[in-house]
């Protein structure tokens, strides 16, 4: 039987009086590949940011890899080490080389030796097809290359789960495919993935489940063939028409 990676039950999130997430329920098994889509402001980024506690929820339960995230979590850093994240704006560390970006946290947080960390880093940089950029600084790379470095950096922590927060939204069109290619390969290798993205082609190709969110709620959830071919909810149909019409 597959293990539960993430369990969210009745989760609510407020910004002041604004109700950002309403009664979210979601179960993610290990190896699941889930795509989350929805109009901007629908709370999809906020939801995955709650999974590694970059945002705190106010009500309900979030369990990640068997540990409940709340104020009693002894050390949230320990859980974050098993939950990688790739950001819309890459967020590479500009004062460090590509290689140092990849080796810093494994060496500091996982106490991996430098030689070992560099070996792992080069392996993942090869996997995202930019080993030759290892000695450069992030500012010297294109957007697509930076995002692939960011993926390699997350992988170097050997996480159980990877969160993607609109990883291709800040990229020029010609660079989107090189990042998606890497993500597809990861998905095929069995990585547990939660992707907030508008790349519906990617969703069709790799997702086990597609989740549609609107106004802080999960409106509809299902396998991609059902989701795209016979959406049940009116809001989903409207969204799909808008996003697929061009």
């Amino acid at each position: 039987m597959s293990e539960v990676a993430i369990q969210i039950r009745g989760m609510n999130k407020f910004y002041g009086t604004f109700h950002a997430l309403k009664e979210i329920n979601l179960t993610v098994q290990k190896g699941d590949r889930i795509v989350i889509c929805g109009p901007s402001g629908s709370g999809k980024s906020t939801m995955i940011r709650c999974v590694n506690r970059l945002e705190e929820h106010q009500a309900g339960v979030i369990e990640v890899l068997g540990t409940e995230l709340n104020d009693e979590v002894g050390n949230i850093d320990v859980i974050r080490r098993d939950v990688g994240m790739v950001f819309q704006h890459f967020n590479l560390f500009p004062h460090l080389t590509v290689l140092d970006n990849c080796t810093l946290s494994p060496m500091l947080s996982r106490k991996v030796s430098q030689a070992e960390a560099e070996k792992t880093a080069m392996m993942y940089l090869e996997r995202v097809k930019i080993p030759e950029q290892a000695e450069k600084f992030p500012g010297e790379l294109s957007g697509g290359q930076q995002q692939r470095v960011a993926i390699a950096r997350a992988l170097c922590m050997k996480p159980e789960i990877l969160l993607f927060d609109e990883p291709t939204s800040a990229l020029d069109p010609e660079m989107i495919s090189e990042v998606l290619e890497v993500m597809v390969e990861l998905a095929q290798d069995g990585m547990t993935m939660l992707c907030v993205t508008h790349e519906m082609g990617f969703a069709r190709q790799v997702a086990d489940r597609v989740i549609f969110m609107d106004k802080g709620e999960i409106v509809e959830e299902g396998p991609p063939e059902d989701f795209f071919n016979s959406p049940k909810e009116e809001r989903t149909r409207t969204f799909l028409q808008q996003i697929l019409s061009h």
């Binding site: 974050r80 080490r81 990688g84 500091l108 947080s109």
Partner: peptide, 18 residues
């Protein structure tokens, strides 16, 4: 500094000190 810098470091599981 962009907030993303601190967030990225958090997401990598780095401690406050690091």
């Amino acid at each position: 500094l962009p907030v993303g810098q601190e967030e990225a470091a958090k997401a990598l599981g780095m401690s406050y000190f690091h």
